[in-house]
Nucleic acid binder design. Structure first.
Lengths: 210, 210
DNA sequence: GTCTATACGATGATAGAC
DNA sequence: GTCTATCATCGTATAGAC
């Protein structure tokens, strides 16, 4: 008997970022993304992915050397997309700490609201990779969280923010976004933009900035 | 080759709540908890669990009917412990909304800081269960999150809270706690109690209560 | 309660034809 | 690029002895 887990996720439109070119590779990755998100990496077989595409299992090995490399590609793309969004947001944010936090949190939130399946796979299945394969993504993640910590530290130093425990607050602000894929329904009344605004407002309250 | 994932988790003291009686069952569950948390449910074999205990694979089937039932037990215990902590906290909190939020968030935070491995398994691996087996735990989870939503709604109705988007704020407050196992190091300078206080303070700021 | 032995299907991956 | 056929291995579970 097969479990029917995370059924809600099955219905979501699979949106791989546009940085992955159209073609067979992309179609395979989209299918793997959907299945990994709903069944987990270990819970998904190569046969599952192939069957979904109307192929035999061996056909996939013309495009990827192993099942693990499907996950590596997804985890890499996910982290790159996220990090790039954060950096682009900061570039347009000016020098005021509150504006920088608002820009970072809006980008963080929008990424998670726009690519919920990718966020889930990136966060929950990266541990299925051997450290060598996960390392580049982990490094990117560390850089991304450092961006927020630095903006907060600067705001504190400038007297603009007064969070209780800056590091705890940074982790808490980050957590709001990471959990989005588990409750947010993109089709409803709350648009991604409104969600992003709400999270930015919450972050500024947590920092004592408003 | 086997991956070495979530290595940090391997070192943590495995603390199953005291509600699980001492004995062979408990020792098996503790081992399963540690392995499920570090390798995932699908990534852990019955042979892995048995070997860790110095047993043959079949010995486990004297205690549990299947590998799935190990996870069911862990997920159930985890949700019960969490829900019981929240209810007990509310009972001592009086009638003031801010005090109720503080009590709920302190309990929520302490549970996640005290049982990080259990929190991870409960949150990440429950989807590996067929819906019938996961249903009781899901029902408990819904009740737990409803507690926070109701306290917030009452505080808003009484004019004590002014959150942007009450439901978004409730989800965001909950998220702070859920993410604790992924960054918090129990042995360090920040005690669980201090973390709980910080999170309670952050929650009240988000609600516009201070 | 735990062991050995074993059945059986599923799995990741490969070889070679088309 | 995809197919069929196939491999060795792994994972779950059972039977029956001690």
């Amino acid at each position: 008997m097969r479990s029917l887990p995370r059924a809600r996720l099955q219905g979501q439109k699979v949106s791989l970022p546009p940085s992955v070119p159209e073609g067979a590779r992309r179609r395979i990755l989209e299918t793997a993304l959907r299945l990994f998100a709903s069944q987990g990496f270990h819970g998904t077989s190569v046969r599952d992915v192939a069957k979904e595409l109307g192929l035999g299992p061996s056909a996939l090995y013309s495009h990827f050397p192993s099942k693990e490399h499907l996950l590596v590609e997804l985890v890499t793309v996910g982290h790159e997309t996220h990090h790039e969004a954060l950096r682009a947001a900061l570039l347009e944010a000016g020098t005021e700490p509150a504006a920088q936090v608002r820009a970072l949190i809006r980008a963080h939130t929008l990424t998670h609201a726009t690519h919920p399946l990718l966020a889930i796979v990136v966060n929950e299945e990266i541990h299925a990779l051997p450290p060598e394969l996960a390392a580049p993504a982990v490094a990117l993640r560390d850089q991304s969280s450092a961006l927020l910590r630095e903006v907060i530290a600067r705001g504190v130093a400038m007297g603009r923010f007064s969070p209780p425990e800056p590091l705890v607050t940074a982790a808490a602000i980050s957590a709001m976004g990471v959990r989005i894929p588990y409750w947010y329904e993109p089709g409803g009344a709350l648009t991604p933009g409104a969600l992003a605004d709400a999270h930015a407002e919450l972050a500024l309250r947590m920092l004592g900035a408003s």
